[in-house]
Amino acid sequence: MAPFSLISEGIDLTNVQRIEVSYIRVAPYSHFTHTFFGTVPEPSGSALVAIGLSGLGCLLRRRTTL
């Protein structure tokens, strides 16, 4: 995975002309298989915080029952 935020600055991602995937110095006697190349949304920070708080709540509730 490669977040867009790691791409060099100054690139207009809303108007992309070409995309190139470049494999360099693949080790001798290697083989690989790919099934998909595309884009994905990453989980939002607020959602991860909500998961964390919810999980913490579960742990605390469990502790009170013990």
């Binding site: 494999y23 110095r25 099934t35 190349f37 994905v40």
Partner: peptide, 20 residues
């Protein structure tokens, strides 16, 4: 979308550089 993704199911690559 916020990231590129490249799915791999089989690999025995010991080393490589992969750029987009």
């Amino acid at each position: 979308s916020t990231a590129f993704v490249l799915y791999e199911t089989d690999s025995d690559v010991r080393s490589a550089i992969l750029n987009i």
